[in-house]
Design a protein around this nucleic acid. Structure first.
Ligand SMILES: [Zn+2]
Ligand SMILES: [Zn+2]
Ligand SMILES: [Zn+2]
Ligand SMILES: [Zn+2]
Lengths: 132, 132
DNA sequence: AACACTATGTAATAATATAACATTTACATG
DNA sequence: CATGTAAATGTTATATTATTACATAGTGTT
């Protein structure tokens, strides 16, 4: 079980938009889409995004500067994220694989560093694009 | 063995700068540092960076928008990168771990996607920062 | 020389993100 | 209910990161 978060007005508007989107959304595209709802400035968007990322409702796809709703029933593990990205159609989906997340969460190397978080992005061609 | 690449003038200037830097460098900081050598415009920097990334001499740290020289004797595997990032001092180093890279290169899930590349970023506290 | 290819130079602009400051709302606690 | 405090909001300006468009120059091959 995870702590239930109540989203504020702006956070809810922006989360709903991202959650409905079939693809990752960029900040300024979000801004454009919520202007009719009274959210007028980049900072309002970025603040909501920061919060949503923090509580694991969305994730940032770093290589794309874009945001996607968590596909993992709101990641307990917003600190352990993995995505698969099609380099042709730019489809992105969150990988939910227990073995992988265990392997990476337990990873330790010789550096003496204690890892508390990771983000993994896989790139390739999705089924559809492969068969073209 | 890998194909030996000859770097062009701008590419060499920019690679040398990044290679000497103890920390990842950002594009505009690179620009600032090479202006005395005649590289005056962002595009000149970005073009060199693109090429250097392509041939595996440097890597981009996506979560930081910064560039680091390959610490792996010029990655044969510029398609399989892993980094450890200290969230306190921002020290970044490239992880070279055969088991990890094998595990990830062979990773396959149920999506039917063929992965040809990955990038992994671990976050935490380095030895030094941990003991503070 | 003619060609293809890679790299360079320059100006303008697009896209992404944050700083600074003022105000308002939610809500715990005396 | 009053008061304090943390979280969220609103607004303007600005910083940072990256690309478009177009012109020119070098490099190597035939
Ligand atoms: Zn998730
Ligand atoms: Zn695809
Ligand atoms: Zn490398
Ligand atoms: Zn550190």
């Amino acid at each position: 079980m995870q702590k239930q978060q109540t989203l504020s007005r702006n956070q809810k508007i922006i989360f709903d938009l991202i959650d409905k989107s079939p693809e990752p959304m960029k900040a300024y595209s979000i801004l454009f889409n919520v202007q009719k709802k009274g959210i007028k400035a980049p900072l309002q968007v970025y603040r909501a995004l920061d919060k949503l990322v923090e509580i694991g409702k969305i994730h940032k796809i770093e290589s794309r500067n874009a945001f996607i709703a968590c596909q993992n029933s709101s990641c307990q593990i917003s600190k352990a994220t993995a995505f698969s990205i099609c380099e042709s159609c730019e489809n992105v989906s969150e990988i939910s694989n227990t073995k992988l997340s265990k392997y990476l969460s337990n990873f330790a190397d010789s550096s003496g560093m204690k890892y508390s978080k990771y983000n993994l992005e896989f790139f390739g061609l999705c089924k559809k694009c492969k068969s073209k």
